[in-house]
Design a protein around this nucleic acid. Structure first.
Length: 239
DNA sequence: GCATTAACAGCCG
DNA sequence: CGGCTGTTAATGC
């Protein structure tokens, strides 16, 4: 890890509560939350650095306190394949934690990011002791399942503008990434990776979506204007 | 036709 | 300067 970047990067000022944007934290009993706060560690990951790599052993459930991560891997041909993105309030890795298997993808910070690490022991303790926590996890798994089913669907039948629209809508999913602001710094190349299209085609799709007033394209980023509209794009035919 | 890669000029931080 | 954007040209399925 390039530690010299830690000193030069402006620190993200701490929120008084690192779980402010986390849904499950607001569901827990206060005494359970005390234990969590005592046992969860936080780490700063500078933009471009790996949080973890495919094949790593999985000892933590991880969450984004602030910043922006992508889950991806490199194909045998050397192409980058992005599966999903995590923004503030998003937690991930429960699949491998529950199955006790190695990490199935790389996780890379696309911007400076504060990551929370919950030890496996705490995670298991919550499973044993907190019904709200189980309920949250069940719903998260269900939301993810729906997301990946829609991925298969659009991979096979949707046009590219719609694909980009859905990928962006998924990134701002209110349950999986509840704390994200509607303004996000992300290059069009990364949007291409997420949607599995070329940068040039991603640019074209963004312009279409901007014309429909679903988002605005900023330099090096986008602002979501109509999340519901993105999810439903292209909407009624003939519009 | 439509998407992809390659290449390039222009812009921003 | 380095990274990102917006375009165009060449190539491929």
């Amino acid at each position: 890890m390039p530690e010299n970047q830690l000193a030069t990067t402006t620190p993200i000022h701490s929120l008084d509560n690192k779980f402010a944007r986390t849904i499950w934290a607001s569901m827990l009993a206060p005494e359970h939350m005390q234990k969590v706060e005592a046992e969860v560690m936080e780490r700063f990951i500078p933009a471009g650095a790996y949080v973890c790599r495919k094949g790593d052993t999985v000892d933590y459930w991880m969450g984004v306190i602030e910043g922006f991560l992508k889950m991806s891997s490199i194909s045998p041909e050397g192409k980058t394949i992005t599966f999903s993105c995590m923004l503030a309030g998003g937690w991930f890795g429960e699949g491998s934690l529950l199955k006790t298997e190695s990490r199935k993808y790389d996780v890379v910070a696309l911007r400076d990011t504060r990551v929370a690490y919950m030890p496996r022991s705490t995670f298991n303790w919550l499973l044993d002791n907190s019904i709200p926590f189980n309920r949250f996890l069940l719903q998260q798994l269900n939301e993810r399942l729906g997301f990946f089913i829609s991925l298969v669907e659009y991979d096979r039948m949707l046009d590219i503008d719609t694909r980009v629209a859905r990928c962006l809508a998924a990134m701002f999913h209110p349950y999986l990434n509840p704390g994200s602001s509607m303004q996000l710094q992300i290059s069009q190349e990364e949007i291409g990776y997420i949607s599995s299209v070329s940068r040039q085609r991603a640019n074209q799709a963004l312009q279409v979506l901007e014309k429909k007033k679903l988002l605005s394209v900023d330099y090096g980023g986008i602002t979501i204007l109509d999340l519901e509209g993105l999810r439903k794009f292209p909407g009624e035919p003939g519009k």
